[in-house]
Nucleic acid binder design. Structure first.
Lengths: 213, 213
DNA sequence: ACTGGCTGTTACCGGTCTGTAACATTGCGC
DNA sequence: GCGCAATGTTACAGACCGGTAACAGCCAGT
């Protein structure tokens, strides 16, 4: 009851390495990567700085490990999207929108990856590769989904939805979740409707793409 | 030729206060607010730390002054929008899109305000008021423009374009300007077309709103 | 020429940060 | 029970940071 309280995660079922990553992600998220020191991370993780430095050679290495952890966690979202709507790419696009809304509305600290890209301004920071690859992969997966769904301007729709999500998550940090990002789903559905048909002049849309209310 | 070279701005026509703000904005932009010290700012501005602290009581004060400077600079954009298309709100909306594209494509460090909101993670940071007011004002002005243009779902369009711009500017910092933000104008025009008409089912759009190619 | 305000210079304080060294301790596999 | 690897503890180095004090010079307005 003295050291193993609910706050910091002391020696639980997780090994120090996992606890450090988990704690670092939370503290980075709350205070920014440059706003928290390795000492605070180690202490909050129920360990000490030496152990931290034995697992991660430097703070940058820890940052990279955290970002990789974020990326691994996001893999689950895509598999969930597939298993929830097997063989139905269009439904998966709509489901993606709903998942994105949860990310955009239920959280006021945005995307860890995007935040890291802003905070680690140096162009040659080693973490930038991780960020770029992650973001590109996310966008490309979304584009593939749109193509599989038979959407006319699939890549343009993917870019639109992608920018919408990026914008919503960063917007939350300036004007809050009650701002424009509150209409995330409505806007996304409108985008899907707009890009699903061949051209705005020709209303000869495919039947399977006219699901939007 | 020894001290007044092209690099740092030494005693030019600007007073120390202006030079400090100008220099701080540039350095903040390049390295992040937490990534540059007041000493470096003062030196690069051709002055010293004491003068800096005589004008700005603290680094936070300097940050706020910089953000106010950004806000003041952006005022010009709106007046330019009005003078370039006097009495034509719809044209101003399209012009806004083009100006936004320049912001989004011609720059890889995003919006100073949004970046500050991310970097200054503390919810009670004094600069947050400036950021929030600025962003809300920008969005509201855009919404007023859309309403004046007679666009059906004016507020929804404003939110869409707003999120699109926010997304494009933050996206540049992870995947670069050649990524999704390259299609900023195309997406924006599609959104204008989509929200200009009353409902997607009723193609009875107003004539003045059907300017999009 | 004088004066008063603005600016420059130097030195310093206390704190915090990343990263390391040396040593003590725990705990698990055998 | 032993040994070895992982972990904890303490102390420290070196750098940087925000912020202040005391004093020296400059320059415009009168």
């Amino acid at each position: 009851m003295k050291t193993d309280d609910a706050g910091p995660l002391r020696s639980g079922p997780l090994r120090p390495r996992e606890r450090i990553i988990k704690t670092a992600r939370e503290l980075f998220r709350r205070h920014g990567m440059r706003g928290v020191g390795v000492d605070a991370i180690a202490e909050q993780a129920g360990t000490n700085k030496m152990t931290l430095y034995r697992h991660f050679g430097s703070k940058d290495d820890l940052i990279i490990a955290c970002l990789r952890d974020v990326a691994a966690e996001n893999e689950q979202i895509w598999t969930d999207l597939e298993t929830a709507n097997p063989g139905d790419p269009l439904a998966q696009v709509h489901a993606w929108l709903r998942v994105g809304a949860e990310c955009a509305v239920g959280d006021d600290r945005g995307c860890d990856m995007a935040n890291a890209a802003i905070e680690l301004a140096e162009h040659d920071h080693p973490a930038r590769h991780v960020i770029e690859e992650f973001k590109k992969a996310h966008r490309n997966r979304l584009a593939q989904l749109c193509r599989d769904a038979g959407i006319a301007k699939a890549d343009l729709l993917a870019d639109s939805l992608w920018l919408l999500l990026e914008g919503a998550r960063v917007s939350n940090q300036s004007v809050g979740a009650a701002g424009p990002s509150a209409h995330f789903i409505a806007i996304g559905e409108a985008m899907i409707a707009a890009f699903a048909q061949e051209t705005p002049a020709k209303p000869k849309a495919r039947a399977r793409a006219a699901v939007v209310a």
